[in-house]
Design a protein around this nucleic acid. Structure first.
Length: 401
DNA sequence: AATTCGGGGCG
DNA sequence: CGCCCAGAATT
């Protein structure tokens, strides 16, 4: 690739971007905090998805200080449905770092920015270039795709080493004094023109010297090795209707502080042992046929809360695919049996055993320990749920199931 | 270097 | 239904 081709790329791409670009909320100012928030939200997330979240987040947490001083659950609630929830916690931790170390001002310093929680190589480059116009590369999936095509690079973009190589190339391409616009131009081209499936080469401002297009290989590049498919997990969950003072409410619980969906709220559910998975194939069979599954739920809830539940029927099946796990969840409806009441129905045996467990443990129905809570539809706005359970609960209440 | 972290949109 | 997306932290 000639030096002329590189100059052509930088010049034409920058002009193309400056002739007209998308009117996005985070482009209305160069406030480093606003850029920072947008870049965190945009990690692995599309622009159209981010926009409403961004508007709400900036209205609620308009400054580094506001975010740093907010209760963490409120931040998580504002992130509800956006995914990769550690981003929200890390962003707030970063805001607190900026308050402690930099007097509330995002530092115009590459090393200091890169040291913020949740800020990696891409995001530090994006903040430094867009907010401060510093000549740092910001290499994301768009940039790797665009440059792989323009320079006909054969490297596997799924490998970490490839990003490092492309960062060096991207740094060389930054026009003097135009780092912010140029980096955004690269991503804008990737998002609008040099798209993954069917790139629009004809209107592309740099098509003239694009190696991949010249060789007719624009749809073959970049090279990307395939990810492992998510491992399937059969799960059973339950909507437990309260009684008495908890009438009209259902039982939810909070997940642990680390790991998958950390600190999010959810319905009680559990992994079905491999040897019991065949039971889940009983489409609309009666619960009697699946007594062992109802028994598992009864035992699990009793062990966790001391509550004796009585599974009633199947409500729905819910599929949810994470990048590495595929949940296939069957959701049951249950109500509560009174303490020391005689269990009835198909679940009698399992329920009786479960009752013995919590009676032996001296647990009381009224003493529901954290992290479990009873909630009704009227305070769904208090707790943060992942989309999977948000949808299940909405369906449940809306359709009066 | 590989795995763990959501969720949605699109051909 | 497979693929991809304005990636970072952890191991």
């Amino acid at each position: 690739m000639t030096a002329e081709a590189k100059q052509h790329f930088s010049r034409e791409l920058l002009h193309w971007y400056r002739r007209g670009n998308r009117d996005l909320p985070w482009r209305k100012s160069r406030d480093p905090y606003r850029i920072w928030v947008s870049e965190i939200m945009l990690q692995q997330t599309r622009v159209d998805t981010v926009i409403p979240y961004y508007e709400r987040f900036m209205a609620k947490f308009p400054s580094v200080q506001a975010l740093a001083e907010a209760p963490e659950p409120e931040v998580l609630k504002c992130w509800e449905g956006l995914g990769y929830y550690s981003r929200a916690r890390n962003l707030q931790a970063g805001a607190r770092q900026v308050m402690e170390l930099h007097q509330g001002q995002v530092p115009d310093d590459k090393t200091a920015v890169a040291a913020l929680k949740g800020v990696g190589p891409y995001t530090s480059g994006a903040i430094m270039s867009i907010a401060f116009n510093r000549p740092e590369p910001a290499v994301d999936g768009n940039v790797m795709r665009v440059l792989s095509r323009y320079f006909a690079l054969e490297d596997d973009i799924a490998k970490p080493a490839t990003r490092v190589k492309i960062e060096k190339l991207a740094a060389e391409l930054i026009p003097e004094g135009a780092a912010g616009d140029f980096n955004q131009a690269l991503m804008e081209l990737g998002a609008l023109v040099c798209t993954p499936k069917s790139p629009s080469c004809l209107p592309c401002p740099v098509m003239e010297h694009c190696e991949a297009r010249m060789e007719g290989r624009e749809t073959e590049l970049p090279i990307k090795s395939k990810a492992k498919p998510p491992r399937p997990e059969a799960r059973i969950g339950v909507i437990i209707e309260g009684s008495g003072e908890h009438q009209g409410k259902v039982l939810v619980r909070q997940r642990p502080a680390t790991g998958l969906l950390a600190q999010m709220w959810e319905l009680p559910h559990l992994l079905v042992p491999k040897e019991l998975e065949p039971l889940l194939r009983f489409g609309d069979e009666q619960l009697t046929e699946q007594a062992p599954l109802g028994g598992l739920l009864t035992e699990a809830v009793a062990g966790d809360t001391g509550l004796l539940i009585r599974p009633q029927r199947q409500l729905m099946d819910a599929d949810h695919i994470f990048s590495h796990i595929h949940w296939k969840m069957r959701v049951y409806k249950a109500d509560l049996g009174a303490i020391n009441a005689e269990p009835v129905g198909p679940m009698a045996q399992m329920a009786a055993e479960a009752a013995a467990v919590y009676t032996a443990a001296g647990k009381q129905q009224a003493e529901l320990r954290e992290p479990y809570r009873w909630i009704g539809p009227e305070h769904m706005d208090e707790l943060a749920f992942p989309n999977l359970f948000l949808k299940i609960l909405r369906d449940y209440w809306n359709q009066d199931l």
